[in-house]
Amino acid sequence: MNLDVLARYGPSLVHGLGTTLTLVAVSIACGGLLAIPVALARLSENRVVGSLAFAYVYFFRGTPLLAQIFLVYYGMGEFRPTLQSLGLWSFFRDAVNCAAFTFTLNTAAYQAEIYRGAIRSVPRGQAEAAEALGLRRWTIFRYVIAPQAAIIALRPLGNEIILMIKGSAVASIVTVLDLMGETRLAFSRSFDMTVYLYAAVLYLAVVEVLRRIWNMLEVRLTRHLALRA
């Protein structure tokens, strides 16, 4: 164990961890908002809308996250005049924003598939019964379909967040100083392998904490389904 390295680079690693968590939290939240219309579009009976959503999902799930982030980070530079006239350039100039933008689009595709599967898993009879009661479409979705779908979606959503935490490490390649970025910086200065091991411990700890929170959440959300002794 090399404690000097930990004392020297520990604070920046923790700071990087904060960046990673913020990046992931923002991406998952924005991606979740974007995912709902995409999921509904995938379920839509309109052919054009359905295939557009399918193409979006297929593209973001079928290509590497690293390639996507390069496409946004380097590719947006080409559209600088257009972006400047739209007042968006200051957003895309910053690597962190590009990373958050890419992750949002990426996780929206994955989350859309999760929500689509969850919505479809709710038996048709539920919607039909609600319709027979004279509820409006939105009310049916909000109070009948969504609560049941949420239980199905919970576990895959937890997996998706873990995948995003791991995947967010590629942001370090486009100069973002997340946990991985700080670690690479510390390694390039100290040439001490142990910084990578400290980063590994931090990543594992985050994933483990999230897994436990998710287990508790699942117990809580499904408590009405549990068998009473």
Partner: peptide
């Protein structure tokens, strides 16, 4: 399983590449 499913693939790659080098 816990370790290699929990670590970012990129970090695993760096540890194998630089660690293997050393």
């Amino acid at each position: 399983t816990t370790v290699f499913r929990g670590l970012p693939e990129l970090l695993t790659l760096f540890i194998v590449y630089y660690g293997g080098q050393m």
